[in-house]
Amino acid sequence: MSDEFMDINHIEKVKDALEDDQYNWRTVDGVANQLGISSEDVRKIINGQLRDQVVRTYDSNLNSAVYTTRKHYGEKESTLNRLLSAFTNRVV
């Protein structure tokens, strides 16, 4: 799917999947599987249309980058975790 023609419904669905209350963090593949769209399209949306709304960290247990929205991160992570992440530059 071309970046300039990315379906607005897919963008909203990716955002909703990242903010799903069942999860604090999501992998690209997990979102793609849930929505039935390609991992490449999810990655394009995260790095494109949602880039200012999404934060990323690395999960060593999954050996993968994981993502959530800034809003969801603020609601789900404790103040202490957010401060520690800021000091260690763990969340970008």
Rank of each mutant, 00 (worst) to 15 (best):
S2L: 06
S2P: 09
S2R: 04
S2Q: 08
S2A: 05
D3W: 14
E4D: 15
E4V: 13
E4F: 12
F5W: 09
M6W: 10
M6S: 09
D7V: 00
I8F: 10
I8A: 12
N9P: 04
H10P: 02
H10V: 04
I11W: 01
K13L: 09
K13F: 06
K13R: 15
V14M: 03
K15Q: 11
K15M: 09
D16I: 02
D16T: 06
D16E: 10
D16F: 08
A17P: 09
A17W: 08
A17T: 12
A17E: 14
E19K: 08
E19M: 12
D20P: 14
D20T: 15
D21L: 12
D21C: 06
Q22N: 15
Q22P: 09
Y23V: 09
Y23N: 09
W25F: 04
W25R: 03
W25N: 01
R26Y: 02
R26K: 06
V28I: 07
V28E: 07
V28M: 03
A32N: 11
N33S: 07
Q34A: 13
L35I: 04
L35A: 06
L35P: 05
G36F: 01
G36W: 00
I37S: 06
S38E: 10
S39C: 07
E40S: 04
E40V: 04
V42D: 01
R43K: 03
R43H: 04
K44V: 01
K44S: 02
I45T: 01
I45A: 00
I45W: 03
I46F: 02
I46K: 03
G48V: 07
Q49V: 12
L50D: 10
R51L: 15
R51T: 15
R51F: 15
R51S: 15
R51W: 14
R51Q: 13
D52I: 12
Q53V: 12
V54C: 14
V54A: 14
V55L: 07
R56D: 02
T57K: 05
T57G: 03
T57M: 05
T57W: 03
T57I: 06
Y58P: 01
D59T: 07
D59V: 08
S60W: 01
S60G: 00
N61S: 01
N61F: 01
L62I: 00
N63R: 00
S64R: 01
S64F: 00
S64W: 00
A65K: 00
Y67P: 12
Y67S: 14
Y67T: 09
T69L: 15
T69H: 13
R70Y: 08
H72C: 11
H72N: 12
H72A: 12
Y73V: 14
G74D: 15
G74N: 15
E75N: 11
K76H: 09
K76C: 12
E77Y: 01
S78R: 13
S78F: 08
S78E: 10
L80M: 02
N81D: 07
N81K: 04
R82S: 04
R82D: 05
R82W: 07
R82H: 05
L83V: 13
L84R: 02
S85G: 12
S85K: 08
S85Q: 09
T88N: 04
T88R: 05
T88C: 04
N89Q: 14
V91A: 03
V91K: 00
